[in-house]
Each structure stands twice: as C-alpha cells, then as structure tokens.
Amino acid sequence: MENIIQIKNLTFDYIRESDEGSETIHAIRDVSLDIPEGSFTAIIGRNGSGKSTLAKNLNGLLLPTGGKILVNGWDTADEAHIWDVRQTAGMVFQNPDNQLVASIVEDDVAFGPENLGVPPKEIRERVDEVLKSVDMYPFRTKSPHLLSGGQKQRVAIAGVLAMEPRCIIFDEPTAMLDPQGRQEVMRIIRRLHEEGKTVILITHFMDEAAQADRIVIMDDGRVIADGTPGEIFADEETLRRIRLDVPLAVDMAHRLREYGIPVPADIITQEKLVEYICQYK
C-alpha cells in the first residue's frame, strides 16, 4: 500500500525561556515512520513524550527542525503546498470548544469548504453528507453550545471531513469527554477507518489504542515500540516502565499468574481471557 505520510528522521526542538535562562527542549529526536494509506495507527505515551508535537508536525502546524515529512509526496515545509498538505491531513484536537467557530452547526461545518472556494451547491451537499456520517444531521440547525461534549466533538470531526481529507489525525479526541461521549467518538473513528480514511489516533486510553491495527509508543521524543496491539500489549514490562496502563485482560492475566494460574502470554484481549477461563467450566 502507498504511504500517505512519510516521516524521515524528524527532529523538533524548541526553546523554553525561564528565570534560569533559555534551554533547548528536544521534543522529537530522530523519528522515522511510514503511514500506509487506509491504516489505523494509535500513538501512545505519557505526557511530554512528544506525541502531540509529532501530530502537529504531520500537517505543517509545526515545521521540522531536522529531517522532513512528506504528505502525499508534498514536503510540509514547502510553502507552495501547505494548503494541499492540510487538506490531505486534517486534524481534530482535544477540546471541542476551541474548534467550533460558528453559532449554527451547519455553518461551522461549512466554514472549511467555504474557505477553499467550493461552489455553494457542493458545500450544501458536503455539509449534509458529513453531518450524516457523524450522526449529527438532525442537529444541523442547532447552536453548538447546546450540544454535549461528544456531540460537539462529532461536529468538529464533520468540519474536518467537509474538507475531504484522506487522513485524519486525532489528538486525544476523547480526553475531555464523559464515557458516553468517548464511545460516540470512537464509534465514528472506527467507521471512518472502515470507510477507507487513514486514521492516526493519539490517546491515553489503552482500550482505544487496542482498536487500532498498529500501535506506536513514544517516550522522550523517540519511538520505543511499534507493532500490532498484540505485540505491544504482550510487552507488559515496557508499558509499566514508562508508566502506561495495560488493558484489563493483560492486567488480570498477570494477577492470575501470581496466584499460580498458568495463563498463556498471548492473552491480551478480554474475549481471549473469557475464552481461556471458560474452557474450565
């Protein structure tokens, strides 16, 4: 499959000013990754590991200090193609309140295509289509401030979809939502992936990361692991060392082993754990 995003030896430094003078922070240190079109990649890591800085580099919100990023072949540092880059790779942030600009849902979703100069008739069609795809069509004439967090976030996703990106980067999209809002947003993310969009999901929730087909762990600006959810969650020691959680099944299997129950190491999902325990019934 073709790589829609290629990250080549990316480094990103910034200067932090404080009373003791300024210091250079190496937020990203030599990261190389290829993101195949249509894939679903989760990026996990503790706060300050460089996940969000990486995400902001992917669509040119930040530009590399060293190395380069190609989005559909365009270098993000090439000013002539910055709008092509942003239209190809859209971004959804943590706080939905910061992403909504208009006082009516459908106006908000139309904001992006209007700025692209899309003809009005086509804008109407796109807005209706994307609102339906995030299950927010019935709310199209409502004011965003009357919506729940999960609904607002879905409107923000619709606003990005209206630009018809091939890849969407989600930067902790569920961090500020309640459990129901989280489920709503994850359902939409899975659906977009099934429809062929390339999805990059940055999250602190291991059960969300487990739904991706690839997990990348970042720590201290580096990629320290890259594999399938099965491979990543089997390496419990690494996850504990960098103070991330393991999914429930991995944790329970670990606890059962301490009681002397020989749970096999490849049991990392709840379904597998239930299957294992029920063979004794």
Partner: peptide
Amino acid sequence: MQLRKSGCEVPVDALTREDAAKELAAYLQ
C-alpha cells in the same frame, strides 16, 4: 459479568481487579 454470560459460574460481586483476580483464582483452582 461477561464470564457469567459465557456460562462460567463465577461470583459477580467483585468490583476491583484485586477481588476479581482472587475470586477467579479460587474458581479456577
């Protein structure tokens, strides 16, 4: 609860992982 639904007669009053592990270990042993 999921274990119960799959036909395992495990007790379902555990709320924490510690308690659930203890009950599951006792059940399996």
